[in-house]
Write a protein that binds this DNA or RNA. Sequence first.
RNA 1: CGAGCCUGAAAGACAAUCGCUUUAAAUAAGAGGAAAGUCCGGGCAACAUAGAGCAGGGUAGUCGCUAACAGCGACCGUCCGUAAGGAUAGGGAAAGUACCACAGAGACAAUACUGCCCACCGGUUUUACCAGGGGCGAUGGUGAAAAGAGUGGGGUAAGAGCCCACAGCGUACGGUAGCGAUACAGUGCGGAGGCAAACCCUACCUGUUGCAAGGAGCGCUAGGUCACCUUAGCUCGAGGAUGCGCGUUUACCGCUAGAGUACUAUAGCAAUGUAGUGCCAAGAUAGAUGAUUGUCGGUCUCUUACGAGAUUACAGAACCCGGCUUAAUGACGGCUCAUUUA
RNA 2: GGUCUCGUCGUCUAGCGGUCUAGGACUCCUGGUUCUCAUCCAGGCAAUCGCGGGUUCGAAUCCCGCCGAGAUCA
Length: 119
Amino acid sequence: MLSKKYRFHSRGGVKYVYQKGKTIRKPKMSLIFCDNTRGFTRIAVVVSKKVEKTAVGRNRIRRRIYEAIRVNLDLVPKERDYIFIVYSKDVLKMGYKDLEKLLGELVAESKVCYNKKNG
RNA sequence: CGAGCCUGAAAGACAAUCGCUUUAAAUAAGAGGAAAGUCCGGGCAACAUAGAGCAGGGUAGUCGCUAACAGCGACCGUCCGUAAGGAUAGGGAAAGUACCACAGAGACAAUACUGCCCACCGGUUUUACCAGGGGCGAUGGUGAAAAGAGUGGGGUAAGAGCCCACAGCGUACGGUAGCGAUACAGUGCGGAGGCAAACCCUACCUGUUGCAAGGAGCGCUAGGUCACCUUAGCUCGAGGAUGCGCGUUUACCGCUAGAGUACUAUAGCAAUGUAGUGCCAAGAUAGAUGAUUGUCGGUCUCUUACGAGAUUACAGAACCCGGCUUAAUGACGGCUCAUUUA
RNA sequence: GGUCUCGUCGUCUAGCGGUCUAGGACUCCUGGUUCUCAUCCAGGCAAUCGCGGGUUCGAAUCCCGCCGAGAUCA
């Protein structure tokens, strides 16, 4: 689990990212991201009730994603806010390595966009 | 052996590495039997020191348990089942109102229609008949239900609880048993369709809103039989502000030891109570309680076997308790009936 | 977390406990009209009334319990 520092603390911050951020869509989940000025990354995971009906299932999806990011926190660019939105129930059952790979792809694409924007 | 009924334990274990929340910190602690649905009942908080009446809402066999309940236990009645057992909103229809489709003469009404009869009244073609007149309410096969008293006999012009015997119902009275619902037998009286999860009546209970409750400030001023406000649909009653200026709002308090729990003793058929001893550390707030790996278990599939693979229920605290309901894995054991054998 | 509302043909909806195994509109299918298509006309298919119990002679309707979908409160 990520420490409280790297998570969002209110609804306003999430709203801001939703409005100002860029989106990368994949079949199983999508990523919304934008810059911040805090000097560290903030992460949120959104799982709708339509994806998984039980609270246990939603919690498991959330915790697996948070864990995968925590382990690889050094690879994620700093001064950036990320929101992962889960669309598919498969995220619950897919292997840990596959999940890591999927998240890696999303983050890598976000880097490309970031570079383009600056260049 | 077959077909059933009742009951309902437990909620995988250990290790390593890396993390999260609480706390000053740590080698401390950190999801359930249903945390769920939010269907009932309380605590707690605010609203007047929460008061009165009406309206509205709820409950409905008896006794007990309980903080309380629509819950639980025991018992009674009714219905279902061969039985073990199961179900049961189970007060009042003799206070009143409404409804009872279709069919049927008729749906609670009778002066009607159909039918039976001619003793009596009346008429005539006069000893028989029935258009008129009179008597009867056992005929009518439709319907879920037909004035609700069934069977047999007597009785009569024809019939009818009109009378009798047996069986049975309701109600009143006192008797016996029981705390009581009720049961048993007796005497008198009676004819009253169903429906109250239709309105309603009776008895009892019920103020409203909910932790997003609510708390956490200061100063100035007016009025006080009006008006307005005080979280109630109406009336009464009680209270005083209203307004203006500044300050406060991702924070803090409420926020976790309680009708708590384990064992023993004891009262009780039981639900449950009483006493003693011990135990108690979740408290998040975009929301912690986890992830990965290994070993051993459980279940299923394949295989002669070794072994291999898959899987490991339902499900996640949000102020706290008592129930109910639903979700899901699922025995051991006890009992009933039938058949066969001894 | 609290408080409410609604579920009826494929879609949008009516529906006094009884002539409702359910009416209407649109859609769909068949036939007619037309040289052809549309329009129009005629006919037809399509609902176990969200699910399970109960009350009643009888339930889409009344009562209870679930399931699903939505709204709202700082």
